[in-house]
């Protein structure tokens, strides 16, 4: 379990996230949604142990969550770059050398499923195929937590669909937990069990997708819009 108690992160004077409380348990799919600049990526980096909270406590399975927790957390961002001269196969070997829970054979199965040629150099891959290759090496890990920062951002509908299907096909929904930040809510919603809305660095609501649909009679995207409007009229 990842447990955050009242964590905040400041960059100099700017508060990126503030007073975050959450509990993430294995076997659940979580979405963190909100507009650009709401603090989604910062929160995900905190949960990945790549940033340290300025205040508050952050634990994984009862121990402090640090950079070393990367052994239990797979993290993927749409920003970070890979060495462009590597082939896809060499990228797989690199991941294999870095992570004890990496399953090489599974990585190749995912690449095959997503129709990526392992002998291609990363620099010759299209944006969509690079996104697929990154997803493949990330979810080929058997880590209990998989964190994906905007996995569909800037990708065309075909690629988005294949990434969502790849996740459903290869993530072990009984043992692994997925935490996804996104603003492509429509594509991701059927994947999610629970959703957090982040606004101005704070979690302003947290619900299960079933509850949103049952009680509010809204899909997640419309629910987010309504929440944001409510929030603006209050402030």
């Amino acid at each position: 379990m990842i447990e955050a108690k009242h964590i905040s992160k400041r960059f100099l004077l700017k508060r990126a996230v503030e007073g975050i409380d959450l509990e993430l348990i294995p076997g659940k799919m979580y979405g963190i949604i909100g507009e650009n600049g709401s603090g989604k990526s910062t929160l995900l980096k905190l949960l990945a142990g790549l940033l340290r909270p300025s205040t508050g406590s952050l634990k994984i399975n009862g121990s402090p969550l640090t950079r070393k927790s990367a052994t239990d957390i797979a993290y993927m961002t749409d920003r970070g770059r890979f060495y462009p001269y590597l082939t896809v196969k060499q990228l797989v070997d690199f991941y294999d050398s870095q992570f004890h829970d990496f399953k090489k054979e599974k990585a190749f199965r995912i690449l095959e499923y997503l129709a990526i040629d392992p002998d291609e150099k990363l620099k010759y891959l299209s944006k969509g195929n690079l996104g697929r290759a990154k997803l493949a090496v990330t979810i080929a890990r058997e880590s209990p937590f998989i964190l994906l920062d905007e996995p569909l951002s800037g990708l065309d509908p075909m690629v988005r669909e294949s990434i969502v299907k790849g996740i459903i096909q290869f993530v072990d929904f009984e043992r692994q937990s997925l935490i996804i930040t996104t603003h492509e809510i429509r594509d991701i919603e059927p994947l999610l069990d629970e959703v957090f809305i982040l606004h101005g660095g704070k979690i302003i609501d947290h619900q299960t997708v079933d509850d949103i649909r049952t009680r509010e009679r809204l899909d997640v995207e419309s629910w987010l819009k309504r929440k944001m409007q409510g929030n603006e009229s209050m402030s």
């Binding site: 988005r160 594509d187 059927p190 079933d210 049952t214 009679r217 899909d219």
Partner: peptide, 11 residues
């Protein structure tokens, strides 16, 4: 994607 779902009912 896959199936089109209505918004006002659990999937």
């Amino acid at each position: 994607m896959g199936v089109d779902f209505q918004p006002d009912k659990p999937i």
